[in-house]
Amino acid sequence: AEKTGIVNVSSSLNAREGASTSSKVIGSLSGNTKVTIVGEEGAFYKIEYKGSHGYVAKEYIKDIKDE
């Protein structure tokens, strides 16, 4: 099942092309942005936001229960 997560940073969080800190940054998400978690790979979540996919470090995403 898809989960919703909240970007848990004070400034912004980089979204990357792949599940690695050396992957190209494809965008950034500001704190408290809601994202859909579609998968996980190592220390990263694969997320969907406004129709695009990217990878973000798990430690900066807070899971919330689907309402």
Rank of each mutant, 00 (worst) to 15 (best):
T33F: 07
K46P: 01
K62C: 11
S28W: 13
I64K: 03
A57W: 09
K58Q: 04
E2T: 15
A15H: 02
S20I: 06
D63Q: 12
E59R: 13
H53P: 04
K50F: 10
K46F: 06
A19C: 07
N14R: 10
K62R: 12
Y49T: 00
G27W: 14
G51I: 02
G31C: 14
S30C: 14
S20Q: 05
E48G: 02
K65R: 12
N32H: 10
K24W: 05
E17T: 06
Y49P: 00
V56K: 00
H53Q: 07
E17R: 06
N8V: 12
E41F: 10
S11F: 10
K62G: 10
G5E: 02
S28R: 14
V35D: 00
E59D: 07
S10E: 11
S52C: 13
K46E: 05
K50E: 11
S12A: 09
E17P: 05
G54C: 12
A15I: 15
G31W: 11
G51A: 05
D63A: 10
K58T: 02
K58N: 00
K46N: 01
I37G: 00
K3C: 14
V56I: 08
S22P: 03
S12V: 11
D66Q: 11
S10M: 12
I37R: 00
I61M: 03
E41K: 07
I26K: 03
V38W: 05
E48R: 13
F44Y: 11
S52A: 12
S10C: 15
G42R: 02
K3D: 03
V9W: 06
V9Q: 06
S22Y: 08
K3H: 08
E17C: 13
Y45R: 03
A57V: 07
K24E: 06
E17N: 07
S28V: 14
R16L: 15
G31F: 13
E40S: 06
K46A: 04
K50Y: 10
G39P: 00
K46M: 10
A43I: 09
K24D: 05
D66W: 15
D63V: 15
A19I: 07
G5M: 05
Y55L: 02
D66K: 09
T36Y: 13
G27R: 04
V38M: 07
G54V: 14
A1T: 13
N8C: 15
Y55G: 00
S11V: 12
S52M: 14
S52K: 12
I6H: 05
K65C: 11
E2R: 15
F44L: 02
T33Q: 10
S20M: 06
E41V: 10
S28A: 10
S12K: 12
S12M: 12
E48A: 10
S22G: 10
R16Q: 07
I6N: 04
S28C: 14
I6K: 05
Y49D: 01
T36N: 10
A1P: 12
S11R: 11
G27S: 04
H53E: 06
Y49E: 00
V25H: 03
K62T: 14
R16G: 02
E67F: 12
E48P: 03
G27I: 11
S52G: 15
V56D: 00
G42F: 03
S10W: 08
I61N: 00
E2K: 15
G51W: 05
I26G: 00
S30P: 15
G31S: 13
A19Q: 03
Y60K: 07
E59H: 08
S10H: 12
T21M: 15
T21H: 14
A57Q: 13
S23E: 03
I26Y: 03
H53G: 04
K58I: 05
K34Q: 08
E67V: 13
Y55F: 10
G31K: 14
K50P: 02
I64V: 12
F44H: 02
D63H: 09
V56A: 01
D66A: 11
K3I: 09
V7S: 03
V38N: 02
S11P: 09
E48M: 14
K3P: 04
N14A: 14
G39N: 02
Y45S: 01
K58P: 00
K50H: 09
K62N: 09
E41A: 07
R16F: 15
K50D: 09
K24A: 09
K62M: 11
K58L: 03
K62V: 13
S52T: 12
T21W: 15
T21A: 13
Y60V: 04
I64P: 06
E2W: 15
K24H: 06
S52E: 07
K46R: 09
I47R: 00
K46T: 03
K3M: 10
V7D: 01
L13I: 15
T4L: 08
V7F: 03
H53Y: 15
V38E: 03
N8Y: 09
A19L: 06
V25A: 06
S52D: 06
I64C: 10
K65P: 08
S11E: 10
K24R: 13
G27A: 08
G39F: 03
I64R: 04
G27H: 05
V35W: 04
K24V: 07
Y60C: 14
K65N: 10
E67D: 11
H53M: 09
A1L: 14
E17Q: 09
K46D: 02
G54L: 09
I6T: 08
T4F: 14
I47N: 02
S20N: 10
V7Y: 03
S12L: 10
G42S: 05
T33N: 04
V35F: 04
T4D: 03
G54I: 09
L29H: 01
K50A: 11
A57C: 14
A43D: 14
N8A: 13
Y45C: 05
I6L: 08
Y45M: 02
T33E: 09
G18I: 06
T33K: 04
I26A: 01
E59L: 09
N8S: 11
G18L: 12
V9L: 07
G27M: 15
G54Q: 03
K24Y: 05
G42E: 06
E67K: 13
N32T: 06
I37K: 00
A57P: 14
T21E: 14
L13Y: 03
A1F: 14
V9G: 10
E40I: 06
I26P: 01
K24Q: 07
S10L: 12
K65H: 11
G18N: 10
Y55H: 00
A1R: 13
S22C: 13
R16P: 02
E67N: 12
G51S: 07
S12G: 12
S22V: 08
R16I: 04
I6F: 10
V56H: 00
E48D: 06
A1M: 14
S52N: 07
K62Q: 09
G31H: 14
I47L: 01
S23G: 04
S12D: 07
G31I: 10
Y55K: 00
A19H: 04
K34R: 13
G5W: 06
G51Y: 04
S23N: 04
K3Q: 07
N32F: 12
H53L: 10
K50I: 05
V35M: 02
I61E: 00
E41P: 00
I26D: 01
T36V: 14
V35G: 01
G42I: 01
K3Y: 11
G39Q: 03
A57S: 09
S10Y: 10
K58Y: 03
S23M: 06
A57K: 10
V35P: 02
